[in-house]
C-alpha cells in the first residue's frame, strides 16, 4: 500500500510555487514504514497538503493515488473506508466534539474499526497525562489536553499512513516527547508511514526523509 503524489499543486497556487517547493509540482511516493517530515512557514499550504492526502479537499491539480487508485475517483463510501481502515490523522485544529467527554470522543473513533480494546484508551490517556480528564467535556479541556486527545484518537484505528499536522503545537517538550514516543510505537506496530508537517524542524521526530514545502 503506497501513497503517491504526482505534480500536485493547489488550484489557488501559481506555478512559481513549484520552483521553490520540494513537494508542490513534484512527485513523491510514501511507502509503508517511512517517516517523512515536511516543514514550511505558515501560509505555505501545509494543512492544505494534509487535507488533500486525507481526501478532504480536491481543489488541486495533479494526482494523489493510494494503492495505485486515483483518489479523485474514490466514491464517498470509498473515502469513508479509506479513513476507517488505511489512513489516520491528527488535525492542527484537533476537530473534537466539544460537547462530548474525552472518553466519548475516543470511543467514537475506536468503535469505528477497533484496533485496540476499549481498555487501551485509559492506558494511553494515562501515558499522556490525561487519564484523569477522560470524563471531562472536551470543550472545557485545555488546548494541550485536547491535542493529546486528538493524538490518542488517531492511534485507535488500523492505518498504513498517519498524517500529523503540527501535532505538538500546544504541548511542552516533556509532553511532546511522551506523545512522540507513543505515536512511533503505534506506527511501528502497524509498520505504518508517518507524514509529519510542522513549521520548523524539531529533532523530536526521527524522520527518514525531510522536505521543504
Amino acid at each position: 500500500m503506497q501513497l503517491a503524489i504526482r505534480h500536485l499543486l493547489p488550484t489557488y497556487f501559481t506555478e512559481s510555487a513549484t520552483q521553490i517547493s520540494e513537494i508542490w509540482g513534484k512527485d513523491l511516493v510514501v511507502e509503508k514504514g517511512e517517516l517523512i517530515k515536511i516543514v514550511a512557514p505558515s501560509g505555505n499550504g501545509k494543512s492544505s497538503l494534509i487535507h488533500f492526502l486525507y481526501g478532504m479537499r480536491s481543489d488541486y491539480n495533479g494526482i494523489i493515488s493510494y494503492a495505485a487508485r486515483n483518489m479523485n475517483e474514490f466514491s464517498i463510501e470509498d473515502i469513508a473506508r479509506y479513513r476507517r481502515d488505511h489512513i489516520s490523522i491528527v488535525f492542527q485544529d484537533m476537530k473534537l466534539f466539544a460537547d462530548q467527554t474525552v472518553q466519548d470522543n475516543l470511543e467514537i473513533k475506536r468503535q469505528l474499526n477497533p484496533y485496540h480494546p476499549a481498555g487501551k484508551i485509559k492506558e494511553m490517556a494515562e501515558r499522556l497525562g490525561i487519564g484523569d480528564r477522560l470524563s471531562i467535556k472536551c470543550g472545557t479541556c485545555s488546548y494541550g489536553e485536547q491535542q493529546r486527545t486528538a493524538i490518542i484518537r488517531s492511534l485507535l484505528q488500523p492505518f498504513d499512513i498517519l498524517l500529523l499536522d503540527e501535532p505538538f503545537s500546544h504541548l511542552d517538550n516533556n509532553n511532546s516527547e511522551k506523545a512522540m514516543k507513543l505515536v512511533l510505537e503505534e506506527a511501528g506496530a502497524r509498520n505504518a508511514a508517518i507524514i509529519f508537517v510542522d513549521v520548523e524542524r524539531k529533532d523530536l521526530f526521527p524522520f527518514s526523509r525531510l522536505y521543504h514545502l
Binding site: 469513508a80 473506508r81 476507517r84 467514537i108 474499526n113 484505528q157
Partner: peptide
Amino acid sequence: NLRLLLTLGYSPA
C-alpha cells in the same frame, strides 16, 4: 457533528 463523523471515517450510508 455529522460532518466531523464523516471526516473521522463514518460511512454516510
